[in-house]
Design a protein around this nucleic acid. Structure first.
Length: 291
DNA sequence: TGCCAGGAGAAGT
DNA sequence: ACTTCTCCTGGC
C-alpha cells in the first residue's frame, strides 16, 4: 500500500478489504454519516475526517500523513490481515461464505474504550438512529468543539470528567431515556475511582467482561459489544436481535436462550468469533433476514 | 390513538 | 438458573 499526500488529505493506494459502507454500517459505530457522494464523515479520536473508496484506493480527507500513521492506521485496524480472516471464515459453511462475500470490506474499528462504554450503555433496548442522536447530543453539550468541516460543526465525545459535570436530568435531556441513571452512575464511578477503562484491554477477555459488568447499565450483550469494539477482544460474540435472527435462520433452534446461543457461536468460531459476528450482523441487517 | 422494537435490572420463582 | 415486568422514544 502506497500513501500519497493531497490537498488537506491523503490517498491510500491499493487497499484490500476496505469499504466505508461495510465498515460504518455493520453496527460497530455511531458517529459516521453517509454523504451524498457515498463517502462517510465522522468524528473519532477527537478529529473529523471523511472517508471514501475510489476503485482500490481509499481517500481520507481532512487529515495528514502524520495523523494516518499515529491515529488512523490503528483505528482502521490496517495491520490486521482481513484476507486471511475472511478465508478462514468462508471455510466454515455456505452461510459464512455468503456473508463474508457480502460484507467483504468490513473491518473492526479500534475505537476509544470510554466512548464505547457509554455508547453501548445507550444502545440497550434502543434503535440505531436514537443511539446516534443521543451520542450527538452528549457530544455537542459536553464535548470539545473540534471545528467546522464542510459547513458543519463537530464535537468530540466528552471525556469522563466532562460528562460527569452533567446531572442525571441533563443527561436525560440528551434523549438517553431511562439510561440516564446508568450513564450518570458509570461516569461517577470512572471519575471517582480514577479509572482509565482503556487499561481493561490488558486483562483477559473473561476478566475484562467481569470488570465491565460492574458498571450500571452493562449486562451480557452490552459488555460483549464494549469488549469487541472498544477493547479488541475478538473472542466475544454479541448477540443482538439481528444476530439472533441470523443464528436461528442458519444454525440453531428457535427456542435456544441467548447465553446458549453465545456459547454455541464461541465454540464454533473460537478466537475469531467477533469477526464472524460482524459479517453475520451486516448480512442479516442489510437483507432483513429473519424479520 | 395505540402499539411495537430494543436490553438491563429487579424481583419473582 | 429461569421468567416476567418496567424503563423511554419515535415511527407507523
Amino acid at each position: 500500500m502506497n500513501i500519497i499526500e493531497k490537498e488537506n488529505g491523503i490517498i491510500l493506494e491499493e487497499v484490500a478489504d476496505f469499504d466505508p459502507k461495510h465498515i460504518f454500517e455493520c453496527g460497530q459505530c455511531f458517529r459516521w454519516r453517509a454523504e451524498e457522494d457515498g463517502s462517510y464523515t465522522g468524528v473519532a479520536m477527537g478529529k473529523v475526517i471523511n472517508v471514501k473508496r475510489e476503485g482500490n484506493d481509499v481517500i481520507i480527507d481532512n487529515t495528514t500523513k502524520e495523523d494516518y500513521e499515529n491515529i488512523w492506521r490503528d483505528y482502521f485496524d490496517m495491520d490486521t490481515d482481513y484476507g486471511k480472516i475472511k478465508s478462514t471464515l468462508k471455510e466454515f459453511d455456505e452461510y459464512l461464505d455468503k456473508a463474508v462475500d457480502f460484507g467483504w470490506g468490513i473491518r473492526i474499528l479500534r475505537q476509544d474504550s470510554w466512548e464505547m462504554l457509554i455508547s453501548f450503555i445507550i444502545s440497550s433496548n434502543n434503535r440505531i438512529p436514537m443511539i446516534q442522536r443521543a451520542i450527538e447530543n452528549l457530544s455537542e453539550r459536553y464535548g470539545k468543539l473540534i471545528g467546522e468541516y464542510r459547513g458543519k460543526k463537530y464535537y468530540a465525545f466528552p471525556t469522563p470528567e466532562e460528562l460527569n459535570k452533567a446531572t442525571q436530568e441533563e443527561i436525560r435531556e440528551c434523549k438517553t431515556g431511562f439510561r440516564d441513571k446508568y450513564i450518570k452512575s458509570t461516569c461517577k464511578s470512572v471519575v471517582e475511582l480514577g479509572l482509565d477503562v482503556k487499561n481493561f484491554r490488558k486483562l483477559s477477555t473473561e476478566d475484562c467482561c467481569k470488570e465491565l459488568k460492574k458498571f450500571n447499565g452493562v449486562g451480557p450483550k452490552v459488555c460483549d459489544c464494549i469488549a469487541l469494539f472498544g477493547m479488541q477482544k475478538i473472542d466475544t460474540f454479541p448477540v443482538d436481535v439481528w444476530v439472533k435472527r441470523v443464528m436461528q435462520e442458519f444454525y440453531i433452534e428457535e427456542d435456544m436462550s441467548l447465553p446458549k446461543m453465545r456459547k454455541f457461536a464461541l465454540e464454533k468460531f473460537g478466537d475469531i468469533a467477533g469477526y464472524a459476528q460482524q459479517y453475520l450482523f451486516y448480512y442479516a441487517r442489510e437483507l432483513g433476514i429473519g424479520k
